[in-house]
Nucleic acid binder design. Structure first.
Length: 191
DNA sequence: CTCTGGATTAGCT
DNA sequence: GCTAATCCAGAGC
């Protein structure tokens, strides 16, 4: 398993979103290792009306304008966290929202964190995934190249056929085809 | 300062 | 299908 470096993330947001499918996302703490295979992503690029970065840099969205390969974690709907991976060169906004993963390791801890026992309900949504992994503001702006969360590639693994479609839960740029998921994977949030 | 609505989810009808 | 939960960023005054 090879850990992905900054060069992977320092590219067009859309390209990174598509290529993240089939990669492993692993979080290591002192007491546990949680890992999942990324099966659903969404791209939010610089000149995108649906992106938090659209109207310019603010304290909240600043990580999106920062270094590629860092995390952008934000709080929404008064109760949920969403986890993004920053893309594009330093100074240019862009991020990929991780919407769903297929649980690989640490499944018992995910069940505990989610208070659910059905494995299909653990990580099939952006806020379900962060809850299962225990991701909160602590991880905002974290370096994913060297930090506790990393993205890993297992070369032999093929992600399968990729579906490209419109994003979920936004009110502008509804028809932009910026969502990507692995066809027929049962852990995708919405078919 | 006040107000609006959100890159969601769970639970009910 | 509908909506409460529950906080806060961003916009407008």
């Amino acid at each position: 398993m090879k850990r992905l470096g900054a060069a992977f993330f320092d590219r067009r947001t859309e390209t990174v979103a598509k290529e993240l499918l089939g990669k492993y996302l692993t979080l290591r703490t002192k007491t546990a290792t949680l890992s999942g295979l990324i099966v659903e992503t969404e791209a939010y690029h610089e000149n995108d009306p649906a992106s938090h970065s659209y109207k310019g840099k603010t304290p909240r969205n600043a990580p999106m304008f920062g270094k590629p390969g860092h995390a952008y974690v934000y709080f929404t709907y008064g109760m949920h966290w969403c986890f993004n991976i920053v893309t594009e060169k330093d100074g240019t906004a862009g991020a990929v929202l991780i919407r769903a993963v297929e649980p690989v390791s640490g499944i018992e801890l995910m069940k505990k964190n989610r208070k659910k026992k059905d494995v299909y309900q653990l990580t099939n949504g952006p806020a379900k995934f962060t809850q299962a992994f225990g991701i909160t503001e602590k991880y905002n702006n974290m370096d994913l190249i060297n930090g506790a969360i990393g993205i890993y590639d297992e070369r032999q693994r093929m992600p399968g056929s990729i579906v490209r479609t419109n994003r979920i839960g936004i009110s502008v740029a509804k028809d932009d085809l910026m969502r990507f998921y692995v066809r027929d994977n049962p852990f995708v949030s919405v078919k």
